[in-house]
Amino acid sequence: MPQHRPDLAEILRTVRELTVELAPQVDAKGKYDLRVAAYLLVMAEREVALAPALDRKHHAQLEKLLGHPATDGELSARLRAGELDDRFDDVLAVLLDQVADSVRVVKPSQLDPIHQEP
């Protein structure tokens, strides 16, 4: 259902800006808490922007790897059972790409240059 402005991304940004505004009014513990809040909010802003494309890519990669539509739960169970031991390098390449995409949402500054956007 369409909503009026602000959209979700702008709501998150608005609250994050509020954490910055409030910081001078609170003690050291409060400042730390506000920094954590801002950290979570900026992550959520990136997720709103990136999730649709990253979700599609994630599912397509799992389907290609396992030959059918699959979940992280199925991949985890098959890895635990040793069923993919002979495809270790293939699985590593896919998971590294997927985890790098997670980092793109969580904290992109942590990415190695090989995973930075051009």
Binding site: D33, V36, A37, Y39, L40, M43, L92, L95, L96, V99, A100, S102, V103, V105, V106, K107, Q110, L111, D112, I114
Partner: peptide, 25 residues
């Protein structure tokens, strides 16, 4: 809130784990 952030930060350490297995770290 800090523990909530830990859940998402797990991705950062998974990244370090896999980059180490890939011999890049």
């Amino acid at each position: 809130a800090a523990f909530a952030a830990c859940g998402r930060n797990a991705s950062l350490y998974e990244y370090e784990l896999l980059m180490t297995l890939a011999k890049r770290f």
